[in-house]
Design a protein around this nucleic acid. Structure first.
Length: 442
RNA sequence: GGAGAGAUGGCAGAGCGGUUGAAUGCACCGCACUCGAAAUGCGGCAUAGGGGCAACUCUAUCGGGGGUUCGAAUCCCUCUCUCUCCGCCA
């Protein structure tokens, strides 16, 4: 969420940043007009409150001196403030809400080095901080070659009987899947492998968060108020709880309304959780297979850092996600999302796109974002800088998938499929598969 | 599900209608003392929003929201959370 004071001081920068975003029409001048109204109301209200406070103190003194006549006189004087103060308070509340409602629906501002563009066609391939196409190609697994026409994941022999969309539809409708046998085990192996990697090699703390959260948490990370239709809710007493769309929500909100010590930073959390998305508005897209589901497993990474460290942490987090694909021998590319394709809370986002030979295309398998203080402001998440007594500052937050487990399963199946319908198990996964080197072989 | 108790500054913990934004202790930061440190003494130490070039000043905040009152940390309502006991339960 933006700081109105910042907009007041930098109206042109604000307007320029918003013009790069999609479907955003807010202008600084409108916000500043509301803010001026707000401040005028505050001045009037404060004056009345000051008057009331000082008169009330005098009443107290008069009563202490048993000067009842004087007290009555003062009470009469303060009586007329009784009308104007509640009025002013109501006005202040209304205008603050008006401003907050608008500010909370404004997306974050892109960093300077984010490419300007309208949609995914304007995303730019990224080869690392000092990388080139050549260095990246060397570091990343090569695209596999096939002596036969590779199939889509749900058509592969070994998959067909153990990835069951019919039973899932019977239970839950479309966009759900039932995994069985070795396919279910492979999904589990992938999740365990990723968690172990991030906790033992990348310094993340393993978390088992709730997957049901309250509205406040969703507001903190930015899903509310704008994206309510993308979420599942379940009634709870008089209220409701949402099924998390990503573990970013609970883990980032760990620091909600807290003041951390600088020494505690960075905080790095990872969790393997189911994620729930209503996929409103994506009817007809990716309807075959398990690419786009209402429920899927994902390993999420969250970092809480100082403002100075967040950019470095972003590159570090990207590398952590890339390591997953490298260890699995999956070919991929990294894209820097353009201003029009970025998510609501991000200042900069890298997408990892894994190669799917069955689809003959790259598909997103991880998204790594730095949010600056955007979420921190919504959450009131701050830290106290060490050294000389200093005022608290907002932390920076980052999140990334490390990676989407369901989509990674698809990638393993498609990339390691054999002509006979079996699938080889990548070496890194074999310990998690009881030593199996392939599934579905004769 | 039933019955109670509670939520105060970084932490602990007073206050229960009137100069209380809040005692006291701990922690922390200055200064003094010391060759240095400890101990001791003195001082400082919440957050946010206004106004002012500034010095400074005003307002709000004692879990959140609402109410009573000239005046609320203190009284009432409500929500959230925590704890204790009973019941139920993976």
């Amino acid at each position: 969420m933006f700081d109105i004071k910042w907009i007041r001081d930098n109206p042109d920068a604000f307007d320029a940043a918003m013009s790069q975003r999609k479907n955003v029409s807010v202008r600084s001048s409108d916000l500043i007009a509301i803010d001026e109204r707000r401040r005028a109301i505050i001045v009037r209200l404060n004056e009345a409150q000051e008057k009331r406070n000082s008169l009330s103190k005098q009443i107290g003194q008069a009563k202490a001196q048993k000067d009842e006549a004087r007290a009555q006189e003062l009470m009469a004087e303060v009586a007329r403030l009784k009308e104007i103060i509640p009025e002013g308070e109501a006005e202040e509340r209304a205008v603050e809400k008006e401003l907050r409602d608008i500010l909370s629906a404004i997306p974050n501002m892109a960093l300077d080095d984010v490419p300007v563009g309208d949609d995914e066609a304007d995303n730019v391939e990224y080869f690392g901080a000092n990388g080139t196409a050549e260095t990246a190609a060397k570091a990343r697994p090569a695209k596999p070659s096939f002596t036969f026409a590779p199939k889509e994941h749900f058509e592969i022999g070994v998959v067909e009987k153990d990835m069951d969309f019919e039973i899932a539809a019977k239970l839950s409708g479309s966009r759900f899947v039932v995994l069985k046998g070795q396919i279910a085990r492979l999904e589990r192996a992938l999740g365990q492998f990723m968690l172990d990697l991030h906790t033992t090699e990348h310094g993340y703390l393993e978390i088992q968060p709730p997957v049901l959260v309250r509205d406040d948490a969703l507001f903190g990370t930015g899903q509310l108020p704008k994206f309510e239709e993308d979420l599942f809710f379940t009634p709870h007493g008089e209220s409701r709880l949402a099924l998390i769309p990503t573990a970013e929500v609970p883990m980032t909100n760990f620091v909600r309304e807290t003041i951390l010590a600088e020494e505690e930073l960075p905080l790095r959390f990872t969790a393997l959780t189911p994620c729930f998305r209503s996929e409103a508005g994506s009817a007809g897209r990716d309807t075959r297979g398990m690419l786009r589901q209402h429920q899927f497993d994902k390993v999420e990474l969250v970092s809480i850092t100082t403002p100075e460290e967040s950019i470095n942490e972003h590159e570090r987090m990207l590398a952590c996600a890339e390591t997953v694909l490298q260890r699995l021998g999956l070919h991929y590319r990294v894209m820097t999302l353009c201003t029009g394709d970025m998510g609501f809370g991000a200042r900069k986002t890298y997408d990892l796109e894994v190669w799917l030979p069955g689809q003959d295309t790259y598909r997103e398998i991880s998204s790594v974002s730095v949010c600056g203080d955007f979420q921190a402001r919504r959450m009131e998440a701050r830290y106290r800088p060490s050294g000389e007594k200093q005022a608290p500052r907002y932390v920076h937050t980052l999140n990334g998938s490390g990676t989407a487990v369901g989509r990674c399963l698809i990638a393993v199946l498609e990339n390691y499929q054999q002509e006979d319908g079996s699938v080889l198990i990548p070496e890194a996964l074999q310990p998690y598969m009881g030593g199996l080197t392939s599934i579905g072989g004769k």
